[in-house]
Design a protein around this nucleic acid. Structure first.
Length: 228
DNA sequence: GACCAGGCACATC
DNA sequence: GATGTGCATGGT
């Protein structure tokens, strides 16, 4: 455990040195984070930005407005973010839940236990583990580590875990080894996404990558698969 | 024109 | 359980 803590500490230190604090999530409000978390599913962030801009332009970037609006109209607005019908339905479902359970109040939601919130979120249409955890961490400031495609790609390429290990194995890998610190989880994940965006799109190792010579320290009893 | 992007639900075996 | 497929846009 000590060894692996050192590995994660060194990994984070390198990213922080290379990129500086990331100041995530790219949004102006907690509600906007939730819009982004749903809209970004399997789509490039540039497309999400267009959908968010359209919602903002129509003064619909609040779940109270979403709850009141027509689903087809909403789908048309978020069209650039792809899968527009599914995502419109997902936004409507969240809006209904948010209004019914919490009176559209982020502050009220924040007062609830993380486990209760996660269970509720996972019960909503098209809210899976990554989307739920993004909402918990970036909108509600709960200490939950978010695992996304970049996190998996980076960890597996550096032999920390297997590429096919399930979401919860990745999540436990970080949360068992790091203090439950929302600010740390926030920036650590943001660093991984930034690294992924800049260096891990195609080639396994790219020049200038701060992890180019990063070696995994040996860890006794590591449950992870051997690096391929 | 092909490929990929910060997932998830559902059907089928 | 594991695997395959649909969703259906925009940038490179």
């Amino acid at each position: 455990m000590q060894q692996m803590n050192r590995t994660l500490n060194e990994l984070y230190a390198r990213l922080l040195t290379a990129f500086g604090p990331r100041g995530w999530w790219p949004a102006h409000s907690a509600e906007e984070v939730i819009f982004g978390a749903i809209l970004t599913q399997n789509v490039a962030w540039t497309s999400v930005e267009q959908a968010i801009a359209a919602l903002k332009g129509a003064a619909k970037l609040h779940f109270k407005s979403i709850a009141a609006m027509d689903e087809a109209e909403l789908a048309a607005l978020i069209r650039p973010a792809r899968f527009m019908n599914q995502k419109a339905r997902a936004l409507k479902a969240f809006a209904k839940y948010f209004g019914t359970q919490y009176g559209f109040s982020i502050r009220r939601m924040k007062k609830c236990r993380t486990e209760k919130l996660r269970e509720e979120l996972l019960g909503l249409y098209r809210i899976g583990p990554e989307t739920a955890d993004s909402i918990l961490l970036y909108a509600l400031e709960k200490p939950v580590f978010v695992i996304d495609a970049y996190t998996k790609r980076i960890c597996s390429r550096h032999g920390l875990l297997g590429p096919d290990d399930p979401y919860d194995v990745y999540q436990r890998f970080f949360m068992d080894r790091l203090a439950p610190d929302a600010a740390l989880y926030n920036d650590f994940h943001a660093q991984l996404v930034h690294l992924g965006n800049r260096f891990c799109k195609t080639r396994p190792l790219c020049s200038g990558c701060p992890l180019q010579d990063f070696k995994t320290l040996p860890f006794k009893g590591n449950p992870a698969k051997k690096p391929s």
